[in-house]
Write a protein that binds this DNA or RNA. Structure first.
Lengths: 104, 104
DNA sequence: CACTAATATAATTGTTTACTTATATGATGT
DNA sequence: ACATCATATAAGTAAACAATTATATTAGTG
């Protein structure tokens, strides 16, 4: 069982368009920060700060691979979020349109 | 499919402890405003404003029955919320402990 | 029609939060 | 060691938001 306070904190993480879009992107595949910055067309610090919140909230994990840091979803232990994650729109179009490949 | 914007607005409704607790209460049974005020131990305008937001967001519906207005969950058309609603803690204890019966 | 009870609305205040700009850290390649 | 690229952190600002206090509305009752 999850306490209401923890649940509220998790809902706060989902209550932001930038973060929800990041999660929608990570649903497709793991991504590095520069990818997300390119696709969402905002500043690097903005994305970096959102990723930090998502990481602190346990929704994503990071993996450094040489100079790039890849983020990926970490929701296996939160099945109650599945419905919402499934409801997020597909980001396939955005991914194929931009295809930034900044981290290669 | 639900747009990200609508989804964000719905998540904002869930990203508050008072509102999440109201939803947990309404999961047990429909309730009038004074019931909720008694149980959550806050002010009537506070609850009234939260209920208004939940109503505008389509998460609850109201039914006037003489001088009292009863609120109840309205989530049949939002299956993606089921997981979260199920994760909310049971309010049975609170209900039996207070049993305010202000609206009878 | 007054009076009361239940609920809603308005205005104010303090806090939280997202975003920006500037700077720092950390890794890679020369 | 230095320059560059990727990412993180810090500080400041403006907007969003929850809670409070005061007031308005609406329904029921004598």
């Amino acid at each position: 069982m999850t306490s209401t306070t923890v649940l509220v904190d998790t809902m706060k993480l989902l209550a932001d368009k930038t973060r929800l879009t990041i999660l929608a992107l990570l649903k497709e595949k793991e991504m590095c920060v520069c990818d997300i910055v390119d696709i969402l067309q905002t500043t690097q610090p903005n994305i970096s700060q959102h990723l930090k919140k998502l990481k602190n909230g346990g929704l994503v994990v990071e993996t450094r691979r040489s100079q790039w840091i890849y983020y990926s979803l970490n929701v296996e232990d939160k099945p109650y979020l599945q419905g919402i994650l499934e409801e997020l729109p597909s980001m396939k179009d955005e991914l194929s349109r931009f295809n930034p490949n900044c981290c290669k």
